[in-house]
């Protein structure tokens, strides 16, 4: 029967494709794209408590003059840069040592270094606040033990030390993940290449620079991407450690948006900042489209 054949062909053709892509597209459009569009829309209105009138770009103008918004944006940028250097850099070095430097105990160490990734932010906040506590905390006791001075304002309460501390905790949290990806990539490099380099008398550092790094360049890009996006999206780590304090010293866009929307109840101003976040997110996305595309061509 002709109709069955048509159905069959359609099932093998576009219907297959649309059935396959349908659920993801529907869920994602309803729960991500639509709210994102609404965020854009509500950002053009005054706060509900102030009448909720259409004010065009009023919220954005206010944002430009809001020092806390700029602090948050700056912290986000610092976070991205620091994490790129520390998480990806340290992760790569650790992976290289695990890959080439040692023979025994590699699995155990890999597991230990990876472990913090699975710890919930709620838990990370609890443990690190206590470790950094300035009167009884672990770090204070260690400092006293070896006769080092401890910062008088503590760490998470000090406007200059709090953010570096958050970065440090982030490294502790994620370096194992980066290391795992890099290690996987390094294990894909043929042993013959290293052997050849060894016969040529190349040092470990030379081998690392001339063989390992080029061999893992795509994994490096992937790690960089994960770190950039992750650092940009950060909310929970800062929320559980300092909630943006002391004052607004460690505010990032995530915490400032949630605070404005839910605590100070300026949902439309928060929507305006969310739009900035969405725009930057889309910018990262387009870089990834570009990255993918250039990769396919080569």
């Amino acid at each position: 029967m002709a109709s069955t054949r048509t159905i069959n062909r359609a099932l093998r053709g576009p219907i297959f494709d649309y059935i396959m892509i349908g659920p993801a597209v529907v869920l994602f459009s309803v729960f991500i794209v639509w709210p994102a569009i609404q965020t854009l829309y509500t950002s053009l209105f005054a706060e509900p408590t102030k009448g909720g009138a259409f004010i065009g770009l009023g919220n954005y103008r206010e944002m430009m003059g809001d020092p806390v918004f700029w602090i948050a944006l700056r912290n986000n940028l610092i976070f991205i840069l620091a994490n790129l250097v520390l998480q990806v850099g340290l992760g790569t070095v650790l992976a290289a040592i695990l890959d080439r430097g040692i023979r025994r105990g590699s699995t155990l160490m890999r597991t230990i270094i990876f472990a913090p990734l699975v710890i919930a932010p709620v838990a990370i906040g609890v443990m690190w606040k206590m470790i950094l506590e300035p009167n009884f905390g672990l770090l204070r006791q260690l400092a006293d033990g070896i006769g080092l001075p401890f910062p008088t304002q503590g760490i998470l309460g000090d406007p200059y030390l709090a953010f570096p501390a958050i970065i440090g905790v982030g490294v502790w949290n994620y370096v194992g993940f980066m290391m795992t990806i890099m290690l996987a990539a390094m294990q894909g490099i043929s042993k013959d290449v290293y052997e050849a380099a060894r016969i040529d008398g190349a040092s470990a550092v030379q081998t690392f620079i001339s063989i390992t790094l080029p061999g893992v360049r795509y994994a490096l890009v992937l790690c960089g991407l994960i770190v950039i996006v992750g650092s940009f999206k950060t909310f929970e780590l800062v929320y559980v450690l300092t909630a943006g304090g002391p004052g607004n010293a460690t505010q990032v866009l995530g915490t400032y948006i949630v605070e404005s929307a839910f605590l100070v109840f300026q949902p439309n101003y928060a929507a305006g900042m969310s739009v900035i976040v969405l725009l930057v997110a889309i910018l990262f996305g387009s870089l990834q489209v570009y990255n993918r595309e250039s990769k396919v061509k080569t």
Partner: peptide, 19 residues
């Protein structure tokens, strides 16, 4: 999909809640 993969929860929280 690629353009939106970096969207964090907090940027769509209020409309998501309302929906």
């Amino acid at each position: 999909i690629v353009l939106t993969f970096a969207i964090p929860f907090h940027s769509i929280l209020v409309p998501l809640y309302r929906m």
